[in-house]
Amino acid sequence: MLLLKARLEHALAHNAAAIQWYTKVIDTYPFSLPAYTERGELYAEMGKTNEAADDAAKVAELNAET
C-alpha cells in the first residue's frame, strides 16, 4: 500500500511527497528493490545525482545478495 501511494504521488508530480512515501516504504521494508529503484529514478529526474547514485548502489547491493 505504501509503494502504491509513492507511485501515485510520483505520477502526480508531487515529488517531495513521493520521496517521503518511497522513504517510508524503505524504512518499513529495507529490502524493497522497487522502492529504491523508483526513488532513485525520481531523484535523477529532480537532478539529485548523489541521492540517485546512492539508491542505485543500494539496488546493486541488494541484487548481489539475491
Rank of each mutant, 00 (worst) to 15 (best):
S32Q: 02
L3R: 02
E41C: 06
R39C: 05
E51L: 14
R7M: 03
N63R: 09
D55H: 07
H14N: 15
L2Q: 15
E45S: 14
A64G: 10
A16E: 15
P30M: 08
K5S: 07
K5W: 01
L4Q: 10
G40Y: 01
N15W: 08
N15K: 13
I19S: 11
A13F: 08
V25R: 06
H14W: 07
V25K: 06
E61F: 13
P30A: 07
I19Y: 04
E45N: 11
A18R: 06
Y22C: 14
N50C: 05
L8I: 11
A11W: 00
H10W: 02
F31T: 09
E45F: 10
A56F: 13
G40A: 04
A16C: 08
A6F: 12
G47P: 04
K48I: 04
E9W: 00
V25C: 12
A16K: 14
G47C: 02
N50I: 08
A53D: 13
A60M: 07
F31C: 02
M1S: 14
A17T: 10
I26C: 10
E38V: 01
E65D: 05
A52V: 09
F31K: 14
P30G: 05
D55N: 13
Y29I: 13
A60H: 10
T66V: 13
I26D: 11
V25S: 09
A18F: 05
E9A: 15
Y29R: 12
H14T: 06
Q20F: 02
K48V: 05
A18K: 09
A11S: 04
Y29T: 12
E61V: 03
L62T: 00
Y36C: 01
L3D: 04
K58W: 00
K24D: 15
R39W: 04
T23F: 04
E38R: 03
S32K: 03
E38W: 02
T66G: 09
K58T: 08
W21V: 05
E61K: 11
D54Q: 09
Y43T: 04
Q20Y: 02
G40M: 01
N50E: 12
A17P: 00
E45R: 15
P30D: 11
H10E: 15
Y36E: 02
L3A: 04
A16D: 15
A56K: 15
L42T: 05
V25I: 07
R7G: 03
E38S: 06
K48S: 14
Y22I: 11
H14Q: 15
E38G: 02
Q20G: 11
D55P: 07
E41H: 09
D27S: 14
T49I: 13
T37Q: 07
Y22W: 10
D54V: 03
P30R: 07
D55Y: 07
Y36P: 01
K5Y: 04
G47D: 01
T66C: 06
R7N: 12
A17V: 07
T23N: 10
N15A: 15
A18Y: 03
Y22F: 15
E41Q: 13
E9P: 00
D54N: 06
T66M: 13
K58C: 01
Y29L: 12
L12R: 11
M1N: 09
E9Y: 02
Y22L: 11
T49L: 15
A17S: 13
F31G: 00
N63C: 05
A53W: 13
F31D: 03
